[in-house]
């Protein structure tokens, strides 16, 4: 402990960090809470001198709103589908990467590239890949332009309208899932590979002496020993999934839907929309609801982790 007559010095040294935290973290959190509970709060109206009643009107409005439930549904679908798929894929890729010696560094770099690439840029590339079934040069023959449909045709399948006008919600969501999984892989692979490399090789020697089959080594030894890292990527995966937004813009543009199709808007998108329409109160209420959902999911994850993770 610092002696009490020197305590002001300690506070002085801490003050730059504390002041920044107060301005940019503590106050916004407090302000979010305040605005969420002021009925119908909007910045412009506040500047205009209007006063607001304290109440839960914002929450009621948000939940009543049809768009909100749609956003919640989209977010939930994307989360529930992408987190398990990307975690399992990342695990398999990390195990494979860890077990090969030649070109390991090169392959690691390749797998890590999506992480350092802008997600809007990736989205545009994906949009091109999943592009169109349509009419080219005013002709009468339907042509596929995207590489995915080219591949499907090459193997004798029917091209699918993935993201263009008239595409189905299922096709749209499928593209989003592929995109998000692919985008989430590098970080997970990095964490899991780091975990794998810190596992004592003797466990594998012991397993070999015991004549353990490869799949059993994976499920009975690798996965349990890797469970702290798996827990980490699953929890951060869910949190990231609930904050999904820019990936959809990347593929579908700021309308967040295929032309004429159902909206793929997410929770974060809903918050941004409300902010853009000067409905700060509702935006804050939606953000708080998102916060509570993430909290609950994380608590459930934690409960599961306590049971199955071996530190």
């Amino acid at each position: 402990m610092v002696e009490s007559r020197h305590q002001w010095k300690a506070w002085l040294y801490l003050s730059p960090a504390i002041i920044l935290l107060l301005i940019f973290t503590v106050w916004p959190i407090f302000n979010t809470l305040r605005m969420a509970f002021l009925d119908g709060y909007g910045n412009m109206a506040a500047i205009g001198g209007r006063t607001f009643e304290f109440g839960i009107d914002n929450f009621v409005k948000v939940i009543d709103y049809k768009d909100f439930l749609l956003c919640l549904k989209n977010t939930a679908i994307l989360c529930v589908a992408t987190v398990p798929i990307s975690t399992i894929l990342a695990l398999l890729i990390a195990v494979a990467l860890n077990s090969i010696k030649p070109l390991q560094k090169t392959l690691q770099t390749i797998f890590f590239l999506p992480y350092v690439t802008n997600s809007i840029a990736i989205g545009m590339v994906f949009a091109a890949m999943f592009n169109i079934v349509g009419l080219r040069d005013g002709g009468t023959n339907a042509q596929t332009w995207g590489i995915i449909n080219n591949a499907i045709e090459f193997f004798g399948g029917e091209p699918i309208n993935w993201i263009n006008a008239g595409s189905t919600y299922t096709a749209n969501i499928f593209v989003m899932i592929v995109y998000i999984v692919w985008n989430a892989l590098p970080f997970k692979i990095l964490i899991l590979l780091g975990g794998l490399q810190s596992i004592n090789k003797q466990y594998y020697d012991a397993a070999k002496v015991d004549g353990t089959r490869k799949f059993r080594v994976l499920t009975r030894i690798t996965v349990p020993l890797l469970s702290p890292m798996l827990a980490y990527v699953i929890i951060t995966g869910f949190i990231g999934g609930f904050k999904e937004y820019s990936s959809i813009i990347g593929i579908f543009g700021d309308k967040m839907s295929a032309p004429g199709g159902e909206s793929l808007n997410t929770m974060v998108g809903f918050v941004y929309d409300a902010l853009a329409r000067d409905r700060q109160g509702r935006a804050c209420a939606a953000a708080l609801i998102l916060f509570v959902i993430i909290l609950i999911v994380t608590l459930i994850n934690n409960k599961f982790i306590k049971k199955h993770v071996h530190y």
Binding site: D205, A206, D210, G211, R220
Partner: peptide, 30 residues
């Protein structure tokens, strides 16, 4: 695995997530 040896490692290499029973039984389950 086909030599029929038992090997005790210097650091024992016991699987930390398994109980003693599961550790001992592991080779048999294979």
């Amino acid at each position: 695995e086909n030599r029929g040896i038992g090997l005790v490692f210097q650091n024992y290499a016991l699987y930390p997530h398994m109980t003693v029973k599961q550790n001992i039984m592991f080779p048999l389950q294979n």
